[in-house]
Each structure stands twice: as structure tokens, then as C-alpha cells.
Design a protein around this nucleic acid. Structure first.
Lengths: 211, 211, 211, 211
DNA sequence: GATGAATGAGTATTCATTCAT
DNA sequence: CATGAATGAATACTCATTCAT
């Protein structure tokens, strides 16, 4: 008659993880108390967390694992591959940057930066569930464009990092350092600049006409 | 004949700060206990820390402040300005990246990423003592090259971030995420790629000959 | 049939306050450790105190506030007013002195003397919850007796203090200074002397016959 | 050539005791740190205290002992005894109350109230050096007046306390409870009221004419 | 499932006291 | 005499975790 227990239980579990995501992202792993999390989860009792998770660290890792899986990337390689460099990179850039705009993902991003030092496993986990996926897609795309003759051959591992770095640093400047200039920059500007540089550079010599 | 002995007390202070730098950078502000720091400072009594610093936060901030001041940048603008783009950017890139190679500075970098969320003041301090100085030098250089006609006019704020981002991300990949590919990359490769992309991009169309 | 069990938690709270009252009154606020209090409260864990009180000062103030409320005074003004001076003052004197006989109230009295310097708020609180109430009753009574022509007009504020002072000093002599002579004096003697003096004085000139 | 060491040393000792008197009286024994005292003593080093006193408690007791001795009372019994009741009591009252007006003595008074509970020895010491002396003088005076037929025979121990209590309570009301009415009262008013009550009481029946 | 009282192991901090200089 | 660095013991307070209900 009643809804299956399983669902109800999963809801509660998810509710706790969502609360934990918020709290961990603002206070860090050590700074977040179980009481904080319990309150953020709609005022449940701190003890209840231990019905769903072995301990605080288990909650933390479960959170990263499951949240990491939810992150959506430019994951339609089929369609991506057929795009020419400017369009493809713009798509990837926006996809990646847009991902960092969703509050849950900013939270994850903060946690990565914050807790990776304390828990080496977090670095591994994040690499496996997020970073490597992005890199794989982007490297495949670059290789494809090289094969197509649109882009010069180069160390794509370095190339991928250079391209993503020129985008991601803006998020750090915004969210971590809160640099005034960075706060006024739109995602469009960021991606356009990253793509333009990646493809043509800013040198006047031998480059395309002025931007 | 020798320098006066009065440095003894300052030595102890410095000794504590150096220990704290290590401990904070691996365990974070909250994770570092005074006991840890006291042990790292050669087994002194934890109470002694309070002779030199008001409290843990004072130690932390003193540390960042004084360490931040020590960071040496490509600070000879005179010589820098006269260099053509490739040489100038390479110099800046190496200067910046080399700075991050010194263990104390990697520690500072980790702390920045880690504690900036918990202490907004840290973001301010770091911006003032480090980031803004780097940005100022680099923006001035770019503007100069634009004025000279070597580089196309563009939003230099975005340009600076793009260039530095394509370098700094390698440090994150190395030190934070410990990506295997990033660990095998030399500083020379990183800077060369960043400069090449920044100046000419990787597009075959209208670009220079293959790298 | 029996009262609901929900008092369990309040019982614990009260148990802690009672223990604290004892410990504070003998060791003072600073001298009382949470360990002392926890042990006096039946060997509970010191941490448990923080379930019921924000911190040590909150426990201390809660204690004074709630205990202060419990103090019963000659609070039936109706009946009091109709009594002639000797009976009325004797009643008030005994009521006040008897109050100081209860061990909890001696404890409160000690705390007042002891901590009022460190916490000005304690003085305010005690004045409001205890002293002002006593003074109000007694001043009203004196004024009434003046109006009735039984007592000469005078500054009743000073009069009240004189009467109470001649009683209270015996408690100080007993409980604080432990003067041998004071220890042998009964409450009856104290009150009788205070009343006699207050009404007739001890001068032979123009006074009543010998006591 | 230099002043005798002994004096210089005594000066330093006295300087520390004076500083300690101030600090103890505002912060209590436990609340006063050696650092506080050293600073109040003109910025000497905390360690120096241990040249003159065995430990903090020794400083505290030395202080009370020596300060107690300094307190000057209505100590010319010869002259006192010859005064009639009103003049004699007024002199004693003013002498006692005036003593409490000197800041050092208010400090002592506060310390008595505050630390007597923690150190039973303090009660003994104070009783011996101050209270008993006052009582002895006053009891002798009362007995003399009784013998002279000026005052009715009574338990002079109780009588002394009643008289002093009606005065001292005003100091408590002022200094401890900070009662607004008490703050506006002059010493003259206090003593006059205490003497008037002690001699004639406030009853209209059989008393002297209105005050 | 759910609560929240209870514990115990920690942690920052304070401070009297010592002692080398 | 005098300093102040150094210690160690104490202490208020926090919090993850457990468990009886």
C-alpha cells in the first residue's frame, strides 16, 4: 500500500547527501559538523546519518562518487567530432564552463581544491570520475582535428591543459580569489578569448586580422 | 665582528613559521594542530607558540603575509619591457612557474587554494601581495607589446589570465590532481607550449609552420 | 496516572544546576571547573554540560536567574501591612534571615558577594530579582507605618538599609568571617536586637525601660 | 655611594604589592595573572615577582597582612571614651566609613568579600588584623557607656554588629550592588541615620521628637 | 527508522613557575 | 637584580560516534 521502503530510504539518503554537499563546500570536510549537515538536511537528527553512512568520511566519499557521476559533459562525441575547430572548441569550452556554473558543481569544484590535499583518494576519485573523462573527449577531438589537417600536430596532453587552463583560471579568479576584473567577465568572453588564442594566438605577425 | 645575537628570538619565531608552513600546507588550517606544529618546529612546547603569536590564526596570517613578501617575481620591468614577445613571455612564464617550484611556494599555493574559502581575508591578502603584482607586470608588458605593434589589441585582463592559466593548470594537474601525464612534463615544455599558443595558436590556417 | 516522563531531560538540567550552585558557591565562578561540576552532578561527563548550557557562563547565569526566582520573601503585603511595627519588622527580619538559612540561598548569597565584581551583570540581576523586591516590600511597610503615625518620618531608603544591615551583617560575620561570637547567636536574638534598636534605640535617655 | 640595597629592594617589593592590590581587587585572586601584576608594577618582568615572593599566594597573603596593618582606626581610645554616645558613635562611624572610602581599603574590602571563601586563612587574617580590632574598640566604648548609664545594658557583641551593619551595608549597596539610591547617599547621612537609630530608634512612641 | 542524550578523545589556549643568561 | 624564553599542567569547549528508547 505504501510506497516502497527502498525509495523512501533512498530519498532520505539523497537528502543527506545534498545537504552535505552544501555544507562541505562552504565549510570543508573538517569544518562541517554532523550537526550542521543534519540541520541542513531539514532538521533530522545527527544520529540518523549513521543509518545511511558508516561515518563522516563515508558520507563524504559517497557524495563525491555519486555527484561526480552526475556531471554532464559534452558527451556526444559523435556530433562533436564533426564540428570544425572553432565551433568544436567553443562547444567544449562552454560545456565545461557551464558545468562550473551550476551551484552543485561549483561546490564540487571547491571541494576538489580544498580536500584533495587531505585525502589523496579524493584526487584519484575526481580524476577518474571527472577530469579524465573531460580530457579523453578533448584529446580525441584535438587528435581528430590534427588528423583532419585543421590543427597542427602537437602534444595534445599539453594542448588540452593549455586550453582548459585558460578557461578554468577564470573560475579560480572569480570563485577563489574574487578578483574584481574576473567577476565582470562573461562566459562568452572567456570562451571566445580562449578559442581565439588556442587557434590563432595574439601575435600580429603571421596571424589573422585584428580581433 | 659577527652579527649581533639578538636574532635568537626572531629565529625561534621563524622556526615556528617554517614548521607551520609545512604543516598548514599538508593538513590545512583546521587540520593542523598546535601539537603538530610544535613537533615540526623541533619539539618545542605547544605553549611556546603563544609567545610569538596571539593565536593560531595570527600565526597563519603572519605566515602568509611574510612569506608572500618573499616571493620574487619577474620584477625587473626595465629589462623585461625591451624583450620581444616570445622572449618576454618565456621569461615571465619561467619566472612564474619557477616560483611555484620552490617547496615553500608550492606550500603557499596549496594554502591559497585550500583556505581561501574559509578565510576571505586570505583571498584579499594573496591578491594584494602576489596575484596583483604578477598581473600588473604582465598586463603592462602586453600593453607595451600592443603599443609596439607586436601583439594585436585585446582585453589584456583576459589575455593575462589565459596565458597564466595555461601554465598554472599544469601545477594543479601535478600537485593537486597528480595526473600521471602532467608529472612527466618539464617546465620548458609547459612554457614553450603556452607561449607558442599565446602568440600563434595551433591552427594550421594562417598560422606559422608546424611546431 | 503519573506525571509524564518528559521531565527526564529537565531533571538532568536541574541536576547540573544544583551541582553548579554548590561548586560555584564554594569555589567561585573561575575556581569551579567543569570537571568539578560534572562530578558533583553524579559523575556525568563534562561534555554533557554543553548539551544543556551554551557555556560555563550560561550555566552560571541560568542558575542565578532561576534560583533567584525561587527565593520566597515576606510576600503577603496584605497581611504584613496590618501588623504593628514590632510584629511587622520581626516578621520581615525573620523572613529575610530565614531565607539566608537555606543552604542554597547561602550559596547564592556567597556567589553574589563573590562574583558581582567580575560580572557587573550579576549585580544587576541580583538587584532586580532579589534586592529590589525586598526593598520594595520593606519601604512600603515603613511608609505605611509612618502614615499611620507609628514611626517617625525619615528617609526610608536609608532606614531600610539600616534595618537590613543590622541583620545581614550577622550572616557575613557567620558565613564569611566565621566570627566565634557570631556563630553562637540565634536568629531570634539577631532579629529581636535589630527590631529593638530600630524602634527604640539603646539610649537610656528618653527610651523605654531596660531590655 | 648608592642608596642602601635594602631600601631599594623594599621599594621594589612595595611597588609589586601595590600593583597586586589593585589587580587582585578588580580581578580577584584567580583572575589576576602575574603578567597583569608585573605590568601594573611599572612593566617589570613577571619572573621578578619570584625574587620577592615565594609564589602568587605568598604575594597575596603578604599583601593582606601588611596592608591590614596599615589600616588606621579610631585608635585613640583615651579620647574616644570620654565622648558622649552621639559624638562617640559618630566618630566611630565616620572613622570606619572613611576608612572604606580610601581606594586601597575599598580594594581590601572587595578582596575580603571575594576571596574569603576560597582561602579560609584570609578570613582568619582579616578577622585578626582588622575586624577584631574594630570590634574591640567599639565594644569597649559601648560597655563604657553602659557603665556610665548612658546606654542600656545589652549584648554588646550584637550591638556592635547592629551598629556597624547599618553602616557597612551602605558600602555593599554602593560598591557591590551599585544600587542607585545608595550611590546618592553621603557618608554624613549614613552615619547620622545609624547613630540616630542606634540611640533612639525610629518609633514615635516614647522616642524623642521627630528627626 | 529516528531521536537526542551521553561519552570520550581531542584541541586551542592560558598561566604559574623555572631558569639560563 | 632582572629578563623573558620555555615548560607543563590545567581547562573550557567541540564533536564524531554510540546507543537506549
Amino acid at each position: 500500500m505504501t510506497a516502497p521502503d527502498q525509495t523512501e530510504s533512498s530519498d532520505r539518503r539523497r537528502q543527506i547527501m545534498e545537504a552535505a554537499l552544501k555544507v562541505f563546500s562552504t565549510r570543508g570536510f573538517q569544518g562541517a559538523t554532523n550537526k550542521d549537515i543534519a540541520e541542513a538536511a531539514g532538521g533530522i537528527s545527527p544520529g540518523l546519518i549513521y543509518h545511511y553512512f558508516k561515518d563522516k568520511q563515508d558520507l563524504f566519499f559517497s557524495l563525491l562518487r555519486e555527484q561526480g557521476r552526475l556531471i554532464q559533459l559534452a558527451d556526444d562525441p559523435q556530433q562533436l567530432m564533426s564540428l570544425p575547430p572553432r565551433e568544436g572548441l567553443t562547444l567544449i569550452g562552454h560545456s565545461y564552463l557551464g558545468m562550473l556554473d551550476a551551484p552543485e558543481n561549483v561546490a564540487i569544484f571547491r571541494i576538489i581544491l580544498t580536500e584533495t590535499l587531505r585525502f589523496p583518494e579524493v584526487a584519484d576519485m575526481i580524476r577518474q570520475t571527472i577530469v579524465d573523462r573531460v580530457f579523453r573527449v578533448l584529446r580525441a577531438y584535438l587528435q581528430h582535428q590534427i588528423d583532419q589537417g585543421h590543427i597542427r600536430p602537437h602534444d595534445t596532453s599539453l594542448g588540452v591543459r593549455a586550453f582548459l587552463g585558460s578557461i578554468v583560471i577564470n573560475v579560480i579568479a572569480r570563485e577563489v580569489l574574487r578578483q574584481p576584473e574576473a567577476l565582470n567577465t562573461t562566459n562568452d568572453q572567456i570562451v571566445a578569448m580562449a578559442v581565439e588564442i588556442f587557434l590563432h594566438g595574439l601575435s600580429r605577425v603571421g596571424g589573422p586580422p585584428d580581433v
